[in-house]
Design a protein around this nucleic acid. Structure first.
Lengths: 169, 169
DNA sequence: CATGAAATTTAGCGGAGGCTAAATTTTTTA
DNA sequence: TAAAAAATTTAGCCTCCGCTAAATTTCATG
């Protein structure tokens, strides 16, 4: 990661990381979804995948071909999609990471767009950050009273001040 | 945000959001950095900006032109870059959001690559999530004992188990 | 004020990951 | 089993945001 104290753009970090990062965010989305379906159905097909991810079949084909080249899925033209051992391991990691973020957001009181929030954040965090957020989740689980206190704190804060709210969306 | 319970790819969310979201992640990076320099130096130039963000001047020009079209910077060919009122307001928001994320990561014990972690995450969170993470930061500030307890919990967890660590980077 | 240096812009390319349209393969059904 | 339908792939285009190379403008210096 070159210099740690220097700024880069999002694209800049992508370019820096793409050497030692196996998958792009997009590939992660596909692999995670394939893993989900493997768990429930035992297999995956292009048109199921494309419906689940709200993309066109042509887009799904392109990505699955990339995953195949990387040895993450077992796949031949017009065929059924399975995960390789490597793909399963990676998919399991992705799904767990997803759950860690979702749990965290849920803990701090996010209810609206919980899924999309999670989907966007999960690609941005390092392994180390995931581990730490997971630790925080576990900490709250062990001390429900503390989580309860945070919720009260939140209540008060929201009740007390009509949030100034910077309108930048 | 269309259907809340449906999955999309990262790119899919981008495409969905680009209607009601003013800036791309890239533009946010540039605007945030211009804002930083306005605070310290009072102005910005293309080559300063490009050095600060580790991009080539040509890339900075392109983005600043986009920000000008959106009415966020006051800028003419070969000239000095200033922020408009709209740009200042938005930049202030971006810098605050950055600080909120950085503080949160720091709280949960992230020290390595803190800057890059922050830079990547900040673009992914909604206003609502930012407000809630800020609330969590404030909660910890009000209850340093709780943060201390989390740190001890973390210590123990790290000491106790040689983290299994899924090797997916 | 002319000339070289520095700063900036323009033009055009590349990769990621969408899309459509058209071609191809597989499956269904009569 | 042949024709229609459904699924999949290929080809080619678009946007974002990097890049390089070349053109242009501004600045500095004698």
């Amino acid at each position: 990661m070159s210099k740690n104290d220097e700024f880069y753009t999002v694209r800049g970090y992508q370019l820096l990381n793409q050497e030692h990062k196996l998958l792009t965010s997009g590939m992660e989305d596909y692999l995670e979804m394939i893993y989900r379906n493997m768990e429930t159905e035992g297999y995956m097909r292009i048109n199921i995948l494309s419906k689940l991810l709200n993309v066109k079949p042509a887009s799904a084909t392109k990505m699955v071909q990339k995953l195949a080249v990387l040895g993450l899925v077992d796949y031949h033209k017009y065929g059924i999609i399975f995960l390789t051992e490597k793909g399963k391991k990676y998919g399991k990691f992705l799904l767990e990471r997803h759950k860690v973020i979702e749990k965290f957001l849920s803990n701090i009181g996010i209810t609206e767009n919980l899924l999309s929030e999670t989907e966007l954040i999960e690609h941005s965090i390092s392994n180390n950050t995931m581990v730490n957020i997971d630790l925080l989740n576990k900490f709250f689980e062990k001390h429900p009273d503390i989580l309860e206190e945070y919720r009260k704190f939140k209540e008060l804060s929201e009740r007390g001040s009509i949030e100034a709210g910077i309108n930048c969306d």
